[in-house]
Structure formats: C-alpha cells, structure tokens
Design a protein around this nucleic acid. Structure first.
Lengths: 340, 340
DNA sequence: CGATTTAATTAAACCGATTGCATAAACTCT
DNA sequence: AGAGTTTATGCAATCGGTTTAATTAAATCG
C-alpha cells in the first residue's frame, strides 16, 4: 500500500533546480537550457516520476478527459459506435469516461452535470437527441459537444454526425415494393419515448412516404411499436402475423428487432423468405450470421469521425460546426424475396 | 463558450459565510448550523454550483475515479461483464474510465501507468491474467485491484473473481461423452498468447482430463487453436471436419467460436445435431438465438461482484482479499445429441 | 569598457477545494 | 455569576502542479 508519492519539488531538489524549471523541462518549454533539461529528465526517469494528474488539471484548467454519453450501451449498434470512439481515442492523450443511460432521469442529470469545463474537455453524445428544453443548456455549455446519431435543427452550433434515416427507411420500403410486396409491416421503437430516440421514428416516416409514393395505403395494423428489444419485437410481429390478412414483408427498425421478427416467423411456421420477407437495419454482426437483409450504416466510423471532430475542435476552438451525413447501403442477403 | 466558472468563494461571499463553511455544508459535516446550511444550499441551488472536480481531487487526495482494463471490449462475453461493471458503478459517485487493450504493448503500458494513486482510486482488470514479471508491479501498486475472470496463484493480496474453467471444460466434455461421443474436437484460442488469456487454455485442460478419465485417447488433430474470432474458428472447424475420420462433436471455447463451427458445418452440409454436435461457452445472447448448447457463466454478475468488492475495499481498506469462484451451468439446447 | 540586450532560472502567486486550529458565541452547571 | 462546555464559524495552510513577473548571469554592441 503505502508508497509516498514523489512530487515535482522532490525532483527539483534532487536535480538542484526550482520546481518551475522542472515543469518547463517536462513540458518541452524552449525556455530551458539543453543541459539542464537533460539532467532533469535523468532524475525524472530514475525516480519514475509522473506528474500528479489532479494537480495538473487544476493548474492548467484542462481535464484531459472526454465523456461519452450513451444509452443502453450493450445494444449491438451502440456498441459498435462506441467501439469506434474508444479505438480512436485510445491513440490520444485523453481519458474516456463512460456514462451509460438506462433511465430517463439519468439522461437529464448527465446533460446538466457532465458538460462542464471542470469535468471534461469535450463530450460525445450517442443516439440521444436533445429536446427543445435541453437546447439552451447545451448551447451554454462551456465545452465542445459532438452528437453522434443524434440531431437537433436548432443546434447549428454543435457538431452532428447523422444518417438520413428518413431516406434509409424509404429505400428499404421501396426495395420491398419493387420485389412486389404491397402488404408491408413495420416493427420499431416508440416514436414518442422518454429518451428522444429519433431513428425509428424517422425510418417509419420514410416507410410511410414510400408507401404513399407507390400509392399503397398506410394500414395502422401493419405498424407496431414497442420498447426496443428482441422479445418485444417478436410479440409485435406475432400480433401482426396473426392478422386475418397478414403482411408478406416486415421492415424492422433494427437488426435486433429483425431477429425478433424472424423468431416470430419460426414460431408461427412461416418460411423466410417464401412466406415472409424480413429486412433489418444497422448490419451488425448477427445480421451477417443469420443472413439477414439489412440497411448497413457506418457505425464504427460514426464513432471514429465523432472523436476526430472533437479532437479537431479542441485543437482549434474556432473550428466551424460540421453536420456530416454518413451514407447507408442496402445489403441484400437471404431473408427477402418476392411474395408468393 | 465563455462562462466564468463559479467557485466556492463566490458562493461563500453571496451567502455571507467563509469558504470553509460552504465546503462543510456541501459535504454534510455536522459542524454547521441547520439554518446556515439551508441558506448556503439555497445559494448553491440558485447558482447551480458544482464543486470543481480537479480541485476536490487535489485537496482530498481521492480521484473519485475507477479504471477498468479490458481486452477487445466488443467481444460479447467481455461486453456483458463490462455491462455489469458499468451498471453497478453508475449508482456510485465514481467515474469509470475505460482502457481498451488491443495490442500487447498497450497491456504493459496500462499495468505500469494506470494503478497510481493520483490517477485512480481503484482498478478492475477483466480477463487479463498478470504474468509473473507483472506481479511485483501490481503488488506494489498503491491502489486496490480486482481481477475479474483472471487470476494468478502468487497474488493472494488481490481480489479475484473467477470461474473454474478446468471444471467447466471437463463438464462439457463429460456431457458429450455421456451422449455417446468419442470423437470430440476442441476449437479454442491459442494457449500461449501475448495477452495471457487463460480461459481457453484451462477449458482445453478440462477437455483432456475428461477424455483421459473416460479412457478416450487424446488426438492432436482434434485440437485446433486460432486467435479468437468467428472466422478463425470456422477455418479451424473446417479443417477438422474434413479429416478422413471427422469428429462427431466439437466443443468450442466460446459461443463466438461455436458460431464459427456452426457456419463450417453448414458450409460442409453437415446437419446439427444429427451429423455434428456443437457446444459453446458463455451463453451470450447469440447462443439463445441460435439454440446453441453452451456452458453458461455469470458474466454480468462477475462485473457486478467485482465492483462491489472494489467499493467495499475502498470503504474499508482493511478488507481481506477475496477469491470468489462463480458457478457455471450447462444449458442444453438444440445443437447437441447422440452421434448417429 | 560601460550600457543594453538576451538567455536561463528562481521566486511567488495561483488554480479551487478541504481541514486542523483558533476563536467567538451560546449554553450548562454549581 | 463565573468557569467550563459545546457549537458554529473564520482563518490559513495545504494538495502539486503551472505560469507570470522578477532576478541574475552571460552575451552583444557602440
């Protein structure tokens, strides 16, 4: 246990200089003589001296820390984004602290207490779009913030990395229509939810627009929403698939939910894709394993890009806010085909 | 941007008391008058004051931070442990900083630089067992350390939360033998690896012991190891399954690898379980989805328990080191049956 | 060679909280 | 009522760095 921490003053005394000089030597200030620096660095090495983090933070005002706020971080798609964040950030000098949100109240807490200069140098927010009343809070925040897979129209001062979920939902639906489907169901998250997740809502919007454009009437009984999850999606799908006139295709708002739909189909003895086509969204690993047709998004890259933007802004605070829209790509596998 | 931070002195001035009193009021010291406290707390609320973290850390010597060192944190089983850690820790006052290890050098770096009093109050290490030469480093570390799914015989001063992988591997193999299998393959990670992962090695050891106990000779061609991953396991399995005399059952060292084995079987046109039985390890979500027979371990609980132990030790530094062995449970699903 | 610039270093203030010690006020007891 | 406690608060030192201004020594110049 006990191990007396060695301070900069100790190093200074041993090297025969003042603490200030040691500090400068360590931080590569040009204001120190070459020989002096060398002598100091030798002592530093010899005693394995590392500056006290908290002291450094206090005196410089920099925290060398970045926070990431994520909801339900075990969700595969969120994980993959987080993976991009962690991998990219591990090359930098910044520490990453994670705040996982599983309750709506935590969400409010985080937005209020995290983005402060004395806690972190920057914040990444994944998949949680700020609500209207949170806008002033974030706008006034004294640290740069990057939204990943989240957006807000009024927040032009924030970096945002998004996908066009409306276009994505539309494209999936158009693909199913092209295959000849007209009875197309949608299984997603609640459009109205305490976390303000917007992706499912937007994909559903694209779904409706595609139907409308093709002249197919929208049927409320073909739309089901439930808190995100495999079991929940399975129940939604079972309900829909036991209708007198069941859909011949189901568009699930995520791969996780698509798996639930596949399970429902199996339970009901429906063959995929002969009796039912299923499309997911995200293209996480399970999609490849199951041969699921899905809309791929650049999950890892979204996290990576978010970190890059944040670091850039920290380097140069004058960086103009960027709103990047990442592309999506339909990956056709074995769960879709024409209706029989 | 600019927003002058409000300090404890500001609060003190406004409330008409000294900074010390404000500090005591905030920290629930009994040494402050009820009315005074109330008055102070009102000012605190009104100005939304939160103490400067770095300052607090410097003066108390506590970092209020816990580090977790994880290898390849997107691996499903690791994720689940991490989930237990994050969930449990989010209820506490501690921040969690994540250090993801993907290169052997990062591993050494982390062990050297992280467990320092001025950086963190405690460290959790997941699935990375210390090597002999790392022991002194950790032993001398000035902060408490908890190993989760990792162990070292000489480190009795560290908390350890493990499973008995040897027994687990033995049990899986015994189950297959009971079913009537004698040609049983093993697909795992390299026993000798730069991260010093031990679980696959131990499970293989159990596998061999079970064979020996049953009088079944060990065949080297039925043992394959490859860096952890689905694709890698698929290749290993394909090699094994195209032998002149192929195994009728394969024990994979993890569910991820079992999925690779299933893919290999599919590619080779082998029916599961009629032509080939497959058993995994971990019981992560994909196992349930695919109906994989597997050895369940308490992944979430291991993380949870690790945090509890660490917090306990932080509360009471005299806590005796604990070595807990969590139970495992064989979950029989659809990928195993008697050989045909 | 004295005056002035330049380079290297030190001394001291500061970052923002916590806490031991001193002190003042209020209260108890005989 | 005066001595002794108890309670509440202020003062000032402290944590371990960084950084500005001051100082000294060496170098340059007219």
């Amino acid at each position: 246990m006990g191990k007396k921490a060695i301070t900069i003053r100790d190093i200074a005394r041993i090297a025969g200089v003042s603490p200030g000089t040691v500090s400068r030597a360590i931080n590569n200030s040009p204001l120190v003589n070459v020989e002096t620096r060398q002598r100091i660095m030798e002592v530093v090495k010899a005693f394995d001296y590392v500056p006290h983090l908290a002291a450094q933070r206090l005196s410089t005002g920099k925290t060398l820390t970045i926070a990431v706020i994520v909801p339900f971080f075990t969700t595969p798609s969120v994980m993959e984004r987080l993976n991009g964040v962690v991998s990219t950030l591990s090359k930098s000098k910044y520490d990453l602290v994670i705040h996982n949100i599983e309750e709506p109240e935590q969400r409010a807490d985080c937005f209020r207490t995290i983005p402060r200069q004395d806690r972190v140098d920057g914040v990444l927010v994944i998949s949680i779009s700020p609500t209207d009343d949170e806008v002033p809070l974030l706008a006034e925040a004294s640290v740069p913030i990057v939204l990943i897979d989240a957006h807000h129209a009024a927040l032009s001062m924030l970096h945002q990395i998004t996908v066009d979920d409306i276009a994505g939902g539309k494209a999936v639906t158009e693909y199913l229509i092209e295959l000849g489907h007209t009875k197309i169901g949608f299984v997603g998250d609640p459009a109205d939810n305490p976390f303000n997740f917007t992706s499912s809502r937007d994909r559903a919007l694209g779904y409706r627009r595609a139907l409308k454009a093709a002249g197919i009437p929208y049927r409320p009984e073909y739309y089901e929403e439930n808190p995100h999850g495999r079991q929940e999606a399975r129940e939604s799908a079972k309900k829909m698939l036991t209708l007198p006139e069941r859909p011949t295709a189901i568009f699930a708002s995520s791969d996780v939910q698509a798996v639930g739909v596949l399970e429902a189909a199996r339970e009901l003895g429906l063959r995929v894709p002969q009796d039912l086509s299923v499309v997911g969204y995200d293209d996480v690993e399970i999609a490849e394993i199951l041969g699921l047709t899905t809309m791929r998004q650049m999950l890892f890259e979204s996290g990576q890009r978010g970190v890059e933007l944040l670091l850039e802004t920290l380097e140069n605070p004058e960086t103009k806010p960027v709103h990047e829209v990442l592309p999506t790509e339909l990956v056709i596998r074995d769960t879709t085909g024409p209706p029989s």
